[in-house]
Every structure is written in structure tokens, then in C-alpha cells.
């Protein structure tokens, strides 16, 4: 290994792991001077990463308060030194960390809030794609409708939700007192997406989540309607009517970028 590589290894171990072997490489009149100067890099590393996480997770920060957020962020930084080139992606593993680390796993609301905020970030800069218009859909011949297969907009994500993350998020945005964590009566689903460069989310009813998941997994429209009828205990005609209604709202909201027609060949 070259001298330069060895020096960089020592310098990085000081910044990331507090290993002070690099002190002997630093020019200066005394140890106090060397330590003061090295500490600038040591502190900047943590402050920069904590600041990046605070940008990604403002609601989590408000929920746990500033002091605990610093502790939580520092625990994440110590557990997972950055291996990403772009700071944008450093916080990617935060929800998994909070879900699995014994210091935080007893509060599942933390991981769920984090997952919700990260999904909004993903929607914010997801790939651009056109959003299907009503006119295009209306031009499909009636006998092709059963074979329609839809493609989701790249920003569109569904999240499972067990906690009142939406209420906490709204309170944080509006500068109100945040409600305590409370679990939902039944497992919910939240959609997060982007339209016209603005990020949106809303909760879904069970039948809507069922139909969307079936359709974006590649099922044709008629198959998805049958599945909806089976899962929700509806008759075929009722399921088709409900599916058409949902499809209209999805097109309006920009969840769909396009479709193709499944060939029977």
C-alpha cells in the first residue's frame, strides 16, 4: 500500500472511528493544537450527516425532539458509515435501522414515520414519465378493456401503515402539537406519488389497495376485477363498476403512466 493510501486510511479512521493514530502525521507545535485541528474534521463529519438526515426526516425529528434526534442520527451514523457517493442517499437504511436496532425497535412508530418520509423523498425525484390522460383511455375500444394492463408512474409507492403517521405528519407541517403514537384499528395503506412536480399522499380503502396491487403486479383489467370480487366478496358487476370508478380517480391523480393491451396470441 502506498504512503498516501495508508495516510488516508488513518485519517478516515480518526474521523469515523475516533482512532487517533493519524495524530503523528499532523504538523503542529503540540498535541493540543493537533487535536483541535483534527476535531474540526471529526465534528464536521457528524454535523453534516445529521443535517442531511434532518432534511430527509423533519417529522421524525419533530416527533422525537432535537436532542433525541441527534442521538438517533448519531447511532445510525456510527452503525452505518456512509458508503454512498451522494449525500442524498445516506438516509436510505434509516427505517430498517430503527426497526431492528434494540435501542429503537420497541417504538415501531419511528421506523414507520421514517419509511413514510423517505417515500416522499423518493417520489420527489423519481424518474419523469408522462401521466395517462382520460382522452387516451377513452380511445380504447370496449372489447379491449378486459385485456388492459396498466403501468404505474415511477413515483407511485404503496406503504403499509399500522400507526397514525399521517396525523403526526400533518401536525408537524402545520406547526401544531404532535399527537402521541397510536396504532390504527386495522392495517392501513398509504399511497405516495408526484404530480406536476408536487408530492402527494393519501390513505386507501382495502378494496382500492387490493385492486391497485393486482393491477401493477401485471394482471389484466378483467383478472384484477375478478380478484377484487373474490377478495372483497363482491359480485363481478359490482367489482367492475368499482374498478372503473377507482381507475378514473387514479388517472386524475396521475398514478398511471400508460397501458398496453395483453395479447391472447
Amino acid at each position: 500500500m502506498t504512503f498516501l493510501a495508508e495516510l488516508q486510511g488513518r485519517f478516515q479512521r480518526y474521523i469515523v472511528h475516533s482512532d487517533d493514530a493519524v495524530t503523528r502525521d499532523i504538523a503542529g507545535p503540540n498535541d493540543a493544537y493537533r487535536e483541535e485541528r483534527l476535531l474540526i474534521y471529526y465534528r464536521a463529519y457528524r454535523l453534516r450527516l445529521i443535517a442531511a438526515l434532518a432534511v430527509d426526516y423533519p417529522t421524525l425529528k419533530a416527533y422525537v425532539d432535537e436532542t433525541r434526534f441527534e442521538q438517533l442520527a448519531t447511532a445510525y451514523i456510527e452503525a452505518r458509515p456512509s458508503i454512498v457517493r451522494n449525500l442524498r442517499w445516506f438516509g436510505d437504511a434509516m427505517s430498517g435501522f430503527l426497526r431492528n436496532d434494540p435501542r429503537f425497535s420497541s417504538e415501531p412508530i419511528l421506523a414507520e414515520l421514517t419509511e413514510f418520509e423517505w417515500a416522499q423523498g423518493l417520489a420527489f425525484d423519481a424518474a419523469d414519465a408522462k401521466q395517462l390522460g382520460f382522452d387516451e383511455l377513452a380511445s380504447v375500444a370496449a372489447d379491449h378493456w378486459p385485456q388492459l394492463r396498466f403501468v404505474a408512474h415511477p413515483s407511485m409507492q404503496l406503504l403499509a401503515s399500522q400507526w397514525n403517521v399521517v396525523a403526526i405528519w400533518h401536525a408537524q407541517r402545520d406547526g401544531k402539537k404532535l399527537p402521541p403514537a397510536s396504532s390504527l384499528e386495522q392495517l392501513g395503506t398509504i399511497a405516495v406519488w408526484r404530480k406536476d412536480y408536487k408530492t402527494y399522499f393519501r390513505t386507501l380503502d382495502r378494496d382500492e389497495a387490493c385492486l391497485w396491487r393486482t393491477l401493477v403486479s401485471g394482471a389484466a383489467f378483467s383478472e384484477a376485477c375478478s380478484r377484487l370480487a373474490t377478495e372483497m366478496g363482491m359480485d363481478e358487476a359490482g367489482a367492475a363498476q368499482r374498478a372503473a370508478q377507482l381507475l378514473r380517480s387514479w388517472v386524475d391523480e396521475g398514478w398511471i403512466q400508460g397501458f398496453d393491451i395483453v395479447s391472447h396470441d
Binding site: 493510501a5 488516508q8 486510511g9 485519517f11 478516515q12 474521523i15 469515523v16 474534521y41 464536521a44 463529519y45 453534516r48 450527516l49 442531511a52 458509515p81 456512509s82 458508503i83 454512498v84 457517493r85 449525500l87 445516506f90
Partner: peptide, 10 residues
Amino acid sequence: TARQNTHDLL
């Protein structure tokens, strides 16, 4: 170095 990034200009 070593695939890590300090996100600082060292």
C-alpha cells in the same frame, strides 16, 4: 477511502 465516504473535502 475503502469504499466509505466522509462527505467532506479532506
